[in-house]
Nucleic acid binder design. Structure first.
Lengths: 334, 334
DNA sequence: TAGACTAATGTTACGGGTAACTCAATAATT
DNA sequence: AATTATTGAGTTACCCGTAACATTAGTCTA
């Protein structure tokens, strides 16, 4: 290589054996005498030899232990938890995550896929189910396990682990209608691409239509799905449609913002207006209400994605679509 | 390599040129005719050729574009924000983060360092300033830029970007003493290793000692520094020392938990008891008080670490210790 | 038009490991 | 003792690109 790093050859020379023998000892593969082992390992220790995995992967017919992991961003704790679940599981099986933040942009994802594939990863975990044409082509040609996570895909590129966001929105819609609410609103944010949140909104809308009600107001802000957009989004929505009875939010952070707005304006929850969030996020623990929300096992989602990938690497792939499920949790805000 | 991947040779053959010419065209380096360029690129497109970066790094005298990034965990938004800052900046300069979660354990960090170095990274960014002996030896021998982030290290292994946690604790101690509080408490969590939070606690204690007061009660729970441990930690601390006048918390999440406990018990803040947090975390935006806290630019910290690393890679290293600073923000809880 | 220079392309030799094969020495079997 | 395994080690070729050098064709100058 480039610099002054110790190579296998130097270790071998110092131990008075051939490269191959040293390699066998270090990998504990093939046969060698105890005496040789001692000699070689002593030199490894003394010289501080670190194998060059690039060369190993290159030489051997094996794949690397890299796993490319793409997530939209880390501003949202949802993806942080997922990533934590993924990396913990991968790490436990001696694999490393190469991170890629796509900022919700498919072309950025495409660029990242191209780069990461050039590093010969063992597999990929991608957040989301929509990818550019070119991305799809590259992924299919790569010939490695690929897990699409977050938004369940019944016909994935390779494998999918997630929940059905559309259904979760639908269920929330049905629940609210069942509670007697007829004039419903939705507050969320819009990204460049159709994403899971959009699917939830669509499911929500459909449920309401199916129930015969036609009144649904949507508000999609160009912002992050956080507390403040929830606050101001609610203000904006109620200004244009003051008779709304219940609002479903993209996530709990926004819902808490909405809750806060209602409190500020003296609107009683749930009597004057009902509030429902999504995600069962940490923020809910500090709200003086029990928020109606949808619980999603974020950490487990990540862990499972990693598990499924590792299984596939070990040739134990069984299914290709894993629904981890969600639970609608009725609270005191509806 | 292993499978059916298209190699440069195949592209070259298909285009009717030598490997080398194809390589030149693809990297846009050296000279070649426009006609050749067209031919080669057409084949690249047609065959879906993706270069094998392993081989490039291996062949050329260049380093990889990997950067190893270690963080303790992602449960804490602090490190999530830092990571986001790092990866965004690295990504903008065509570098990839290899993630390593150390779970606050130095031996886990050591194992990770060993692995990640074997991938010939361009550089490393490590959270924290304490490392095992062996880690330090490996890091020094690696001959690549290494940035220690989070806890400022005036004599780092290579470079350091962070804030002085001890000082931030000291400043908070002085501030509270200045406000007239004499009986002070600290609530935090303890990890396996001495970490930045411990430094804050020590600085805090020292400030109080320096001011002549000797009353400081520490409580370190074995838990994550979140809302609930803050709540119950406060309960526990006040049970054993009911006359405490002010409590400094490991971070804002815990402080909000403490605030909540006080409210629940009818203790007036700040009249009966004062509360101070740390970090200026997102949670503060939804608390009906303006929390006294210490603002730390998490995202900027990450961005700066990446910048410093990239500078070093481009041979523009200037200093080796970068203090990004903190600001104590007095609020209405003290 | 020879000689000198430039542009375009080809050839060779690695880099740091590993698979596959070979070979010698020792151990087990008949 | 001769034959056959087995073990421990060495040799060679190769993975896929790129640097360095070599070569050829084409252009320009005197």
């Amino acid at each position: 290589m480039n610099n002054n790093k110790i190579s296998l050859e130097e270790v071998a020379k110092a131990a008075g054996v051939s490269k191959m023998t040293a390699s066998r000892v270090i990998r504990n593969k093939g046969s060698f005498s105890e005496k040789t082992r001692t000699k070689v390992m002593a030199e490894v220790e003394r010289l501080g030899y670190l194998p060059n995995r690039l060369a190993s992967v290159f030489a051997g017919d094996i794949n690397s232990t890299f796993v490319g992991v793409s997530i939209p961003d880390l501003g949202n704790e949802v993806f942080g938890l997922m990533l934590e679940g993924i990396d913990r599981k991968l790490g436990a099986f001696s694999h490393q995550s190469i991170l890629g933040m796509t900022q919700h942009a498919l072309n950025q994802e495409e660029a990242w896929i191209k780069t990461v594939l050039s590093w010969q990863p063992a597999g990929l975990i991608l957040t989301g189910r929509s990818h550019t044409q070119k991305s799809q082509a590259m992924l299919k040609a790569a010939g490695i396990p690929i897990v699409e996570i977050w938004d369940l895909n019944s016909s994935p590129i390779d494998m999918s682990v997630g929940i059905n966001h559309y259904d979760s929105g639908y269920e929330m819609g049905r629940y609210l209608v069942g509670k007697g609410y007829r004039k419903l609103g939705y507050v969320g944010t819009s990204h460049l691409t159709a994403n899971a949140a959009t699917a939830r909104m669509n499911g929500f809308t459909k449920a309401i239509e199916d129930a015969g009600s036609r009144f649904t107001k949507h508000l999609c802000l160009h912002d992050n799905p956080g507390f403040y957009p929830g606050f101001y989004g609610t203000e904006q929505l109620l200004a244009s449609s003051p008779d709304i009875e219940a609002i479903f939010y993209q996530n709990d952070n926004m819902a808490v913002g909405g809750l806060n707005y209602c409190e500020t304006k003296g609107q009683k929850v749930p009597d004057d207006i009902a509030i429902a969030g999504w995600g069962d996020l940490p923020i809910l623990s500090i709200v003086p209400y029990k928020m109606t929300t949808v619980r999603v096992p974020h950490l487990r989602l990540g862990r499972m994605a990693a598990e499924v990938l590792l299984d596939a690497l070990h040739g134990n792939a069984t299914r290709n679509s894993y629904d981890v499920g969600f639970i609608l949790i009725p609270g005191s805000t509806t």
